[in-house]
């Protein structure tokens, strides 16, 4: 892999994931660079969401899901027996495909993570800072105590980003965060991603290749075998992947010949 090892914050080694007897991912070995945006692309069913969810052990919630191999975060194996998944998720946040704010006030949404993690500081300030970083503060500062469900879809998604930021994670996983949004809202989120990578490491799954090209520094292309098992085909700096892919399959995919 074309990575300078020093900047890696997350590293997978021979990661295999099964759902019951079905192997969803095979032998994924890759390093994620700190303070960069890494995009995972590939056709539907190639396992890119599964890979993303393996980074904060969200796959644990799916019955009969099982992982083999290692995911190293600061050198610590996330799948080691003594690793507490709750602690991982606290440090590796996630934003989902469909905005999923809690049916609570905006304030309570942003304060949810800090509260359950026993935050001792000034909660008002933390909520404001998170909403500012998610580029939502100016739009909502006068209605923090209204239900989050009164927001538009794009605002809800930015609230979900603010909610993830409020626990001060190091990595933010984004699972197709714009697929349920209109182009204007999408553009706002993309701008936000640019802004966020100064402080955070972002890994984003996207169906939209233009989006991957626009927002990411590195791109990983995954594809499934005939049995449906996802494999990492090519991984490198985004401009390399998009302008001179080494693998024929990558080229076919990004030029729209399939997928």
């Amino acid at each position: 892999m074309p990575m300078h090892t020093d900047g890696a914050i997350l590293e997978t080694r021979n990661l295999n994931i099964w759902y019951r007897n079905f192997q969803a991912l095979r032998d994924i070995t890759m390093k994620i660079e700190r303070h960069k945006v890494t995009a995972l692309i590939g056709p539907s069913g190639c396992g890119k969401s599964t890979l993303l969810r393996s980074f904060n052990r969200m796959n644990d919630l799916i019955p009969y899901a099982r992982a083999e191999g290692q995911v190293l975060f600061h050198g610590q194996d996330l799948y080691a027996r003594e690793t507490n998944p709750t602690e991982i998720r606290y440090r590796i946040g996630m934003v989902f495909q469909k905005p999923n704010p809690f049916p609570k006030s905006l304030y309570d949404n942003a304060a949810f993570g800090p509260r359950i993690n026993g935050y001792q500081g000034n909660l008002d300030q933390l909520v404001e800072r998170s909403l500012r970083r998610a580029a939502l503060w100016d739009e909502v500062k006068d209605r923090l105590h209204k239900s989050a469900l009164t927001l538009s879809g794009g605002q809800q998604q930015r609230l979900c980003i603010a909610r993830a930021l409020a626990v001060e994670p190091e990595i933010i996983l984004m699972d197709e965060p714009c697929s349920a949004l209109d182009p204007t809202a999408t553009l706002k989120i993309e701008d936000l991603i640019w802004e966020l990578k100064k402080r955070y490491t972002i890994i984003i799954v996207t169906h939209n290749m233009q989006q991957a090209a626009r927002v990411s520094d590195y791109t990983a292309f995954l594809m499934m075998t005939e049995e449906g098992t996802g494999e990492l085909v090519e991984y490198g700096p985004t401009d390399h992947i998009f302008t001179r892919p080494k693998d024929k399959r990558t080229e076919d995919y990004i030029t729209g010949r399939f997928g």
Binding site: N56, M58, L61, T86, E87, R89, Y90, R91, G93, M94, F96, K98, N100, P101, F102, P103, F112, G113, I116, N117, C160, R163, A164, V167
Partner: peptide, 12 residues
């Protein structure tokens, strides 16, 4: 999706 949101924030 609401459960997932909470789990992803480190909730037990």
């Amino acid at each position: 999706s609401l459960r997932e949101a909470a789990y992803a924030l480190g909730a037990t």
